[in-house]
Design a protein around this nucleic acid. Structure first.
Lengths: 249, 249
DNA sequence: TGCGAATTTGCATAATATTGCAAAATAGTA
DNA sequence: TACTATTTTGCAATATTATGCAAATTCGCA
């Protein structure tokens, strides 16, 4: 039996029952518990389930994240969000800009998250305000209805005042040679400022954004530390982005 | 049964009944009271419930999302809001600061309102974003969960960049001799900056705020142009504020 | 202040995870 | 096809975590 078949079996079970344990899976699939454990480990790091001591749970049963995320989020974004969570460390200062992927990340945060968030994304405010231990710093500016984010020179100059450990760059277009590009100049400029002031930048993008370009160039691919997508790290659609020194997550 | 499943059980019960005790949970889940105790301890440190002697309670201070907050409007605030609307003219630049009274004003605006709004009040953002012709400028800063407004030096210095025709000053304490005062210094400082940069300032206050003082002095009464309350203009409770050269609305 | 109940702490036991390693399976290549 | 390199899998030794029990401590209340 192929590993992928086991993955499917595990995910189906989790979807149906909401949970799974090593022993019965090992029996059903006729492999050792160690193998199942490694499978679940792998599915966990790919954001497809929640690994807990003794087995695994479906993401919707995670008792430590209390946001209602069922409404507006696609499965792709949930996967990206789960993978992204592993990048955020306690005590860090984190930039997050516009885009619903960043909202998905916020809604998956564990309830006791403790870090400082600097953002121009107004959609994040109601979500983050429920986390008592997250210090929220809002970057002001001209509010854009389309993206629910603040933009303009004011936003850039405010962003310039903060230095972050991590920047989670919201959905944008990526292309091997032309780098990262944005639909709006004002958005792109904020991205550039945040990139400049962060130790590490990770781009968050679903597979539709790979090999796409928009008109405003934000940066080269090599300027970012990593790329978080909804694809497994070994997916051929990511081949274009290998060997550039960026981490594929 | 996985630990996380117990967590979910406990949280569901708490959500439904508002409380839970060790003994019955231990029975239902078939584990010792110690385990339940440790579960509740863990949920408590994650901020998902309130641990008390003998069991747990749901968090009384349910973090309201600001949609909820803006929905909550007393009759008094509606009266103030409707009176305030007539002060706003097309094409003006208007400052609005924190407080639910300003939310009430925003929610009563006519659909075709056309002006520029500058605010540090995050609760206004979702309300105003539905108005196509209102240009919204957000003042950034440190987000305060209590008031859903941005505060701090950053907010003040941003406010200083704009000059408004009108400033609608949110609920605060007013007293004939001691003037207007605020509960938080950071809030008071923003108010002072907005006051300074506005041609006209109107204070919005329900009758409970009249003849009250707080510790941080914002300004003298004579510095404002008018006072909007839920009382009729001839109400005797407003007598203290007559003859000071301020308009009573 | 003193009593009983609730809670914390330390500890033993059992369950679960991690790690290193070797055998087996698979893929890649000449 | 045969051979090597790589990955996957199972296993054993070790570390970690969860759980229940009992003793010690704290707390609430009369």
């Amino acid at each position: 039996m192929l590993k992928e078949e086991r993955f499917n079996h595990i995910l189906t079970l989790i979807k149906k029952k909401g949970k799974a344990n090593y022993e019965s899976l090992a029996g059903e699939l006729n492999v050792s518990e160690d193998t199942i454990r490694r499978d679940i480990e792998s599915l966990h790091t790919n954001g497809l389930l929640l690994k807990v001591r003794g087995g695994a749970l479906s993401l919707s049963k995670n008792p430590l994240s209390f946001q209602d995320r069922t409404r507006y989020q696609s499965e792709e974004k949930n996967i990206i969000a789960l993978k992204t969570l592993q990048l955020i460390r306690e005590g860090q200062t984190v930039f997050m800009d516009g885009g619903s992927t960043n909202c998905a990340v916020a809604s998956h945060l564990p309830a006791n998250s403790r870090f400082r968030l600097v953002t121009n994304n107004m959609a994040l405010v109601p979500v983050i305000s429920t986390f008592r231990h997250i210090e929220l710093i809002v970057l002001g500016g001209i509010y854009d209805r389309e993206t629910a984010a603040n933009t303009g020179g004011q936003t850039c100059s405010e962003a310039a005042k903060y230095i972050a450990d991590l920047y989670l760059m919201g959905t944008c277009a990526l292309q091997k040679d032309l780098g990262i590009s944005a639909v709006f100049q004002s958005d792109g400029e904020v991205k550039q400022q945040m990139l400049k002031n962060s130790a590490k930048t990770y781009a968050l993008a679903n597979n539709a954004k790979l090999n796409a370009t928009e008109y405003y160039k934000v940066c080269e691919l090599k300027e970012i530390k990593g790329l978080v997508t909804d694809l497994p790290a070994n997916d051929p659609r990511l081949d274009d982005f290998r060997g550039l020194g960026i981490r594929l997550i």
